[in-house]
């Protein structure tokens, strides 16, 4: 052992491509399951949630407007950056969950592979889910899936890294932007993931990572009128999940309930909306409707 004093990391939020502390000035101690103090994490407030939604909204249209090829390359770049730091994430994850480093590395590698999987979906899912419709008239009619918009995610509590990537990757692959509330007791790998995102050409605001109490922050995200979808898959408390779903109903957000298992195409579909466009394909139809 060297007697050099280790430089410890300050775990901050990741919002709009920057690493702010909570505007509330609060933090909370994070420990491993055996009680070892690991670090302090920023304790996000309602206003941090609001800032994150604003950043996600600002980033959404430009992100959706990128070519699918570019979105795929950026997701692949995230996988590349994570691969290079797999060892660090395995240790952080092992500390967070009490798992062996070897097993934690397996979860990190699975997360990398999921990112690669979704990198390959960006330029395919629209043709798989959409298409031309054979309507009974002289019209060209086609349907394409489009991103829902801003998705608020309460990440899984006990699967703090792979679970978070599984929730975030399909949403952004489909052109949405995300505000993700990391596992309350195990937020450190998610906060470090912000550093990976920040060095992966992913535009600031596409993914925003908050740490804090789900019961404090999630109700504001679920009720926020500028949020279009809410992923409650990480909400363990059934009562909280029901109240978040009810809050989301106020502006008719799309909700993914806890326990709803979906394959990757199902997850892409969860966070997209179909748009159908009609156009006359013959001169007779160009005359309009029935009048």
């Amino acid at each position: 052992m060297s007697d050099r004093l280790r430089v410890k990391k300050t775990y901050k939020l990741y919002v709009g491509g920057k690493f702010p502390r909570s505007e509330s000035g609060r933090s909370y101690p994070v420990s491993s399951p055996d009680g070892t103090e690991l670090a302090n994490a920023a304790l996000a407030s309602r206003k941090d949630g609001r800032d994150a939604v604003a950043a996600a909204r600002k980033a959404q249209r430009p992100w959706a407007g990128q070519t699918a090829y570019l979105r795929g390359q950026i997701l692949y770049r995230v996988a590349e950056m994570l691969e290079g730091r797999a060892g660090q994430f395995a240790e952080e994850l092992a500390d967070a969950t009490g798992a062996e480093v070897h097993d934690a590395l397996g979860a990190v590698e699975a997360a990398i592979d999921r990112l690669v999987h979704y990198a390959g979906w960006t330029d395919k899912y629209t043709s798989v889910l959409g298409g031309a419709n054979p309507v009974a008239g002289p019209y060209f009619n086609h349907t394409t899936p489009e991103p829902l918009g801003v998705i608020a995610v309460v990440a899984p509590q006990d699967d703090p890294f792979l679970g978070l990537i599984e929730a975030v990757a399909p949403a952004i692959a489909a052109g949405n932007t995300v505000v993700v509330l990391a596992s309350e007791t195990k937020p450190l790998p998610a906060l470090s993931f912000g550093e990976v995102l920040a060095t992966s050409d992913l535009p600031g605001g596409v993914v925003n990572v908050l740490s804090g109490r789900a019961a404090e922050v999630a109700p504001h995200l679920a009720a926020h009128a500028d949020v279009n979808g809410v992923d409650l898959s990480g909400v363990a408390d059934a009562e909280l999940a029901a109240s978040l779903e009810a809050a989301a109903a106020e502006t008719l957000k799309v909700v993914r309930r806890p326990g709803k298992r979906l394959d990757s195409l199902g997850l892409l579909r969860q966070w997209t909306e179909y748009k159908t466009v009609w156009h006359p394909a013959g001169m007779a139809a160009a005359a309009g409707g029935g009048y």
Binding site: A136, V277, W278
Partner: peptide, 17 residues
């Protein structure tokens, strides 16, 4: 919008979501 009509309006069809 979920449905966009270009140079037409109020068209519906069972094959069109």
């Amino acid at each position: 919008a979920g449905v966009v009509w270009a140079n037409t309006f109020n068209q519906f069809d069972a094959a069109s979501p």
